[in-house]
Amino acid sequence: MEGKPLAELLSSFRANVETVLLGKRESIDLAIASFIAGGHVLLEDVPGTGKTTLARALSSGISGTFRRIQFTSDLLPQDITGMHILDADRKSFVFSPGPLFANVVLADEINRGNPRAQSALLEAMSERQVTVDNRTYPLPEPFLVIATQNPYEQHGTFPLPESQLDRFNLRLRLSYPDRGSERQLIRENNLLTMRDGIPASMRPEQVRALRAEVDRVTVHDAVVDYIQRLAAATRAHPAVRLGASPRGAIGLKSTSQALALLSGRDHATPGDVRRAAVPVLCHRVFPKGDAAGSEAAQAILEEVLSVVPSPL
């Protein structure tokens, strides 16, 4: 690992993740792109499609720490941020970090958590820090939240508010594997031997270096203008109640830069933007009335992509 170019480390990282998440190249590319761009990921899918596998693979691939939080209706903010406890020997209160203090945090079934617990997670996602008893503690870097929610089971859930949805850089659906990949999974695994860890491809400090490389990927004015026109078109669409935010447009640019870097280029193209547009903007577009839902939002975005002219 020592002395390898960052591009080679990134390619090795992607290849290793693919060994445990078969047939999901596009989802893996988007998740890695969001990771190195510094954005959190929302996985909306049915159980058993590889959400935990992806989170564990990303953490072990950077030799980082991984923690899983199972969100429930009785989860308290201090259960995830940590708390001050009395140290009898020192006769003072010391901070005991919660599960948020990890490089990759899996927030499982986040929409089952109550609003107070969701708010505690929101500060961590936005500020990369937590505040406990008026004291602030920085989180590790890199820091990534991968949250999951089941789109079909709504009993006993607290839907995420629009402000928190906007903190996720992209939303992915892994879906079921193709026939060949599922056949390979069945042949090679059983419930006692399934693995979702991978060999470490890089260290956390190299992920930070990759994030600096993402910032250096060129985005020409025509591509910036294209991103802005896409965001504006979502706000002007007659079927949309609330369109993509400026944060969403910034996330679309950063993810496009990361996809370019993942493809071995030093500049982002309109193709990178189109590739990232639906995952980055879908959860930030809220259709009106009975059409509300991720499928309706995706249909609107696909329409917007078809009518907004792309630069050459």
Score class of each variant (00 low, 15 high):
Ser63Ala: 15
Ala117Met: 03
Val104Thr: 07
Asp108Ala: 06
Val132Glu: 09
Tyr176Lys: 11
Thr72Gln: 00
Pro151Cys: 12
Gln78Ile: 06
Gln78Asp: 08
Pro159Ala: 05
Glu141Phe: 00
Leu122Gln: 10
Ser163Ile: 01
Glu153Val: 05
Ile146Asn: 10
Leu76Ile: 07
Phe66Glu: 01
Leu121Phe: 06
Arg171Phe: 07
Leu76Ala: 09
Ser119Glu: 04
Glu127Asn: 12
Gln70Phe: 05
Leu122Phe: 09
Thr65Ala: 15
Pro99Ala: 11
Asp178Lys: 11
Arg183Val: 04
Pro97Tyr: 14
Pro138Lys: 07
Val130Asp: 11
Leu160Ala: 01
Ala107Ile: 09
Arg173Val: 06
Leu75Asn: 01
Val104Ser: 06
Phe168Val: 04
Arg116Ile: 02
Ser126Gly: 13
Thr65Gln: 13
Phe95Val: 06
Phe71Glu: 01
Ala107Trp: 09
Leu185Phe: 07
Phe143Gln: 00
Glu123Ser: 08
His155Asp: 14
Gly156Asn: 09
Ala107Thr: 10
Asp74Ile: 00
Leu106Cys: 08
Val130Thr: 12
His84Asn: 14
Ile110Asp: 04
Gly113Asp: 08
Thr65Pro: 10
Leu170His: 08
Pro142Phe: 06
Pro142Ala: 10
Asn169Val: 13
Tyr137Cys: 00
Thr148Trp: 12
Pro138Trp: 11
Tyr152Leu: 14
Leu165Asp: 01
His155Ala: 15
Glu141Cys: 00
Gln118Trp: 01
Arg90Ala: 15
Gly98Ala: 12
Phe101Asn: 07
Glu123Ala: 07
Asp178Val: 02
Glu182Val: 02
Asn134Val: 05
Val94Pro: 01
Glu162Phe: 07
Pro159Gly: 04
Leu106Tyr: 03
Asp79Asn: 13
